[in-house]
Amino acid sequence: MKKPGKMLAELLRHVTKRPATTQYPFKKIDVPATYRGRIVFISENCIGCKLCMRDCPASAITINKVGEEKIFEAVFDLDKCIYCAQCVLSCNKKALMTSTDFELAQITRKNLRMVYDAKPKPPAPPKEPVVAPPADAGAAPASPQA
């Protein structure tokens, strides 16, 4: 049977209900533990095979050797990263992890360049990213996915 205002009952039912929308910046959104957010680098596990660099579709990762020993640092260009987490899949040594950190907007492009310093080296002061301080980024907690 055709009638206008078919949704009326449904609409009136919702007047007293809480809105389905979330006041986002004021109320944080829960993302699932499996969410592919910012990639975390664990320097101790890295053997410098650079498979991640080779597979990255956006050329967002650079792995550099630091000093004489086999210690590596990673540089992420978060503005290039497409958050596909292919590098996590490519890494055989579990040196890369996804985190649920997704609020990555920055005022300048410079801040989007993120350096994960290798442990023995003192943190480089000028390139300090706002996203996560490099001092503890190397030992950032592994994502719950792992």
């Binding site: 949704m7 609409l11 993302v31 699932p32 499996t34 969410y35 592919r36 958050y83 987490a85």
Partner: peptide, 29 residues
């Protein structure tokens, strides 16, 4: 627009499922 609001509200359910399964809402990889 009312139907738009309601159908997109319900779409969130499946978007959340996809985010849970694959880690992203749109580009699932």
């Amino acid at each position: 627009d009312t139907l738009l609001m309601y159908s997109w509200r319900d779409r969130e359910v499946v978007m959340d499922l996809l985010a849970m399964l694959t880690g992203n809402r749109v580009n699932y990889a």
